[in-house]
Simulated scan of single mutants.
Amino acid sequence: MDSSQRIYWTAFYTKPRNEKKAAERLTSKGFEVYCPTRTVLKQWSDRKKKVTEPVFTSYIFAKVDETSRLEILKDTSIVSNVRWLGKPAIIQEKEITEIKSFLEDFPRSELAHGDFQAGNKVQIDSGALSGQSGVIRRTQGNKAFLIIASLGLELYAEISLNHLKKVG
C-alpha cells in the first residue's frame, strides 16, 4: 500500500462553534468523523437547559487517507489540519476508542449542578484542595465560590461544581 493511501485518524481545527455542524456535514458526505460531545446544564438568566456541546472546542477527528484529508480541508467550517512536526497529526485508533469509552462510562449529563446553592456545606473531592470543607458563598455557571475556614483563616476559592459534594 502506497503511503498516500494509508488510513489514519487525524484532527481538524474548525471555525468557532462549528464543530457539530462540520461533523454532520462531513458524515453526510461519507467521511468517518468523530466529534465527541457531552451534555451539560446551562444557566441563563431566565432558565436552565441541557445542551450538547463538543468536548474539544474547535476540533473534530476524522479517519482519512491523503485524498479524503484534502477533501475535508475544502469544507467551509474547517480551518486547518492539526499538524505535528510539519505533517498531519496522526491519532492512534486506541486513543479515539478510549475517548469514546470514557464518555460512555462517565456521561456529563448525570451531573446535577442545580442542586448547589449559597449556604450549602460542601466537601471538595478532587484537586489541590481535595478533602477540604467549605460553604458555598455563591454559584455562577458551573463554578462555586467557597469560603474555606482552615487554620483560623478564611480562604475564598473558585471551584468547579464537578469537584464538590454536599455534606451534612
Rank of each mutant, 00 (worst) to 15 (best):
A89V: 03
R17L: 08
S126H: 13
N162S: 06
Q117M: 12
K63Q: 10
G127K: 11
I78Q: 02
D46T: 13
H113S: 11
R25W: 00
F61H: 03
W9Y: 10
Q117L: 13
R138Q: 14
S77V: 05
N142G: 05
Q123H: 07
I91R: 01
T97R: 05
S150C: 10
T52W: 03
L70Y: 09
P88D: 08
P54D: 02
T139M: 00
K121M: 07
F31L: 04
K48Y: 14
V79C: 12
F145V: 07
R6E: 14
H163D: 15
V55T: 07
Y156R: 13
G168Q: 02
L164H: 03
G114T: 13
L155T: 12
D105S: 13
H113T: 12
P36F: 01
D115G: 14
L41M: 13
S160C: 05
P88R: 04
P54R: 00
A11W: 01
A22S: 05
E98Q: 10
K63D: 00
P16W: 03
E66G: 11
K87Y: 11
S80M: 13
L26F: 00
R6F: 12
L161K: 04
G134M: 00
Q132T: 04
V135L: 05
E66T: 06
V55P: 02
T139N: 03
K143T: 08
T10R: 00
